[in-house]
């Protein structure tokens, strides 16, 4: 349903994404991996029709997403209804006066009447465990709660594609775990998931397919997440991990981390 054909984008003269080609099918769950500034966010923004390729193409359901096609309000409205995007910086995403209005915002733009809005908002709040937060102001919430509000706001209008930019950043382990399970659940319900992350521990849990970005802003690898994580050499070349990085395979489960040696910071802080 989603296709990119050698798309490139640069921001203020600096290349942000180079010659990216990929195809994502309906119902897939894809992780975008890469070091900071390697082009993950740009790719997500392009998929969501927020930036447009300088060269190359970006297609959604075989229709080109470009400045020109998006200037048709009917097309843009239909497109944005199918896409849901949770920004890395949720602060910027929450712009309404209280949680209820925040979740209702998208629904009201679509044009639901207030009773439908109320029903859908309640569903979304129930889904994210936010019942009782309706009257709170989003900026007074904790980081985890804000993320949940952003998620509820996006899910309320029931998009087909759900993209999340670094969704685990700044979450405590418990909330991160909750989010992982929640996303898997959404994927099982048929939503297409596109998640950017540099948290290697959770890649496997979240998706079967991983796309690795190199520091030259190109797609470095596109393969099953299992085999990508085994290819430590590849991860090193993409500068995602350092030389102390290794994989534990004891006690029946595997996890990834890097031990701090002589004060070197961990790779997952990357």
């Amino acid at each position: 349903m989603l296709e990119m054909i050698s798309a490139s984008y640069s921001y203020g003269g600096q290349p942000a994404l180079r010659n990216a080609s990929l195809k994502i099918e309906k119902g897939e769950s894809v992780c975008l991996l890469g070091a900071n500034g390697s082009g993950k966010s740009t790719m997500l923004k392009m998929i969501n029709g927020l930036v447009f390729p300088d060269s190359g193409k970006c297609l959604f359901e075989s229709k080109e997403i470009s400045r020109k096609s998006m200037s048709d309000p009917r097309f843009a409205k239909a497109f944005y209804r199918k896409m849901g995007f949770v920004f890395q910086n949720v602060e910027a995403q929450l712009f309404c006066a209280d949680v209820y209005d925040e979740v209702a915002f998208g629904l009201r733009q679509i044009g639901f009447d207030e009773t439908e809005v109320r029903m859908k908002v309640e569903d979304a709040l129930k889904l994210t465990g936010l019942l009782g937060f309706e009257k709170r102001a989003p900026y007074h919430l904790s980081g985890g709660e804000k993320k949940k509000v952003a998620l509820a706001a996006v899910l309320a209008s029931d998009p087909e594609v759900l993209s999340l930019d670094e969704p685990l950043n700044g979450l405590d382990p418990r909330t991160a775990r909750w989010l992982c399970e929640f996303l898997q659940d959404q994927n099982a319900k048929g939503k297409t998931l596109i998640i950017s992350t540099h948290n290697l521990e959770l890649v496997q849990e979240m998706s079967r397919r991983a796309i690795l970005f190199g520091e030259d802003h190109t797609i470095f690898a596109d393969m099953p997440s299992m085999s990508l994580l085994d290819d430590i050499d590849m991860l090193k070349r993409a500068n995602l991990v350092d030389e102390y990085y290794h994989k534990h395979q004891d006690s029946g489960h595997s996890h990834f981390h890097s031990h701090s040696v002589s004060g070197k910071p961990g790779a997952d802080k990357g």
Binding site: L50, K77, Y80, Q93, F95, G106, R108, Q109
Partner: peptide, 21 residues
Amino acid sequence: EMSEEMHQAMVCRGFAGTYRP
């Protein structure tokens, strides 16, 4: 930077100029 992001977030959620009833 934040205002640009906020604008994008609004676009994503189909902002069409109406605000709050």
